[in-house]
Design a protein around this nucleic acid. Sequence first.
DNA 1: ATTGAAGTTTGACGCAGATCAAAACGGGGG
DNA 2: CCCCCGTTTTGATCTGCGTCAAACTTCAAT
Lengths: 247, 247
Amino acid sequence: MATTLRIVEVEKLKNACSACSLHELCLPAGLSAAELQSVDQLIDRRRSVKRGDYLFRSGAALHSLYAIRSGFIKSCVLHEDGREQVAGFHMMGDLMGLDAIGTNQHLCDAVALEDSEVCEIPLKELEGMSRNIPSLQQHFHRIMSQEIARDYGVMLLLGSMRAEERLAAFLLNLSQRFSARGYSATEFHLRMTREEIGSYLGLKLETVSRTLSRFQAQGLIAVQNKHLRILSLDNLRELVSHHSCRS
Amino acid sequence: MATTLRIVEVEKLKNACSACSLHELCLPAGLSAAELQSVDQLIDRRRSVKRGDYLFRSGAALHSLYAIRSGFIKSCVLHEDGREQVAGFHMMGDLMGLDAIGTNQHLCDAVALEDSEVCEIPLKELEGMSRNIPSLQQHFHRIMSQEIARDYGVMLLLGSMRAEERLAAFLLNLSQRFSARGYSATEFHLRMTREEIGSYLGLKLETVSRTLSRFQAQGLIAVQNKHLRILSLDNLRELVSHHSCRS
DNA sequence: ATTGAAGTTTGACGCAGATCAAAACGGGGG
DNA sequence: CCCCCGTTTTGATCTGCGTCAAACTTCAAT
């Protein structure tokens, strides 16, 4: 009896934001210790998603937002005629499902690219709590706004950059995000295929592969399959901003 | 004395959401009459923006969100190296400035394409009020979410459609939005230049022009300068979804 | 009305990236 | 350990759209 209770408590503690190393990055960023404890009660359960499995599918009803605890998840928008496009790659600390609030239906598929863990955050309860905790409300708004800002960046990339620039911008973006999470900014594992990168960047997989090879030949990076090392962040940055064409 | 007071009151009334024909479309959509009156107090002033003028500029501090009362406004993301891209075209009932909440700085320019009027909505006060009016909070979240959903659509368009499809999707989107505002779904005025359309769609103005000409030759539309008439919504729709290529 | 600047259309041509093809690689399951 | 299938690389060729150019239209300013 006592043991069972104990397990439940430990379970809760394990799920708690206050015990999570991501709480400075994730939804509760910037909350006081007391507020953090309230937010703990939001997380009704953790869920693990195996590589290749769906976290949610386009069209499904929205119950919860999902904060990624660990792993790597892609989101794909689908066109009615079957075309699909990767809309984003998400990693720990990211919040998924924001696009579904407007219609109460998910508009994209979320597929794990590696075994992942997410925290389920029921939207209604988040809304309720954010009415009482202004800093939670603010931070939630910030997160939604940052998603919009990110999308604007992708639009710029898709609408006015050449293949080389897109790839360079993509690698720099990954680098920056890994770095913000305490990992190496210059050496990491690409968890997605060339085709998925291409889909995200509006390119074909052959173009992605060729461009990576070119970068390697130019000494900008070292790629071996999915293992990537950036040899010159500066040169990559230059590539993104300076490159002439496509006024 | 009495006259002055009177003018102030009339002024307030004119600004009031409760008297605005857009209140079913705009921020206060779905609120009760009583709630609507609270929201009236949010709108601290109206502002008019002449054609060509900036509503706000990239980098400027965020004070308020802007609800468009009338007119037509484009938003442009800028790349450090001077490239710029139209990120959206906004019309009455739309809420602008959402991308700035994350950083408290606007990330895009907003330029009026025709003389326009906007309602200024101070963010802090909106946040405060939405803590007390759950349906306002919900609707605000919905609006942000819909902006994300719209962006996903643009990403799909830019990443995986050919020029014809992009243009057709663009025209259908305008059609649908005009129609939702009580205007004709098949006949309207394009307030933006071919170059701005191109920028939004990731195409050059020549391609936009040629494609419009082709649509006209095929009997899908009638264009004369900025005046546009859609002759077959169905055929345009078919063009967007069915067209073969670019798996 | 006149003039100029900005916007639009149309044609000819070139190229970045798509498509097709085939070989090489790698890693997970028996 | 080997086999197999999905992924990646690389080459050859094709094409949609960009680029350059020139004529035309529209509209605002004088």
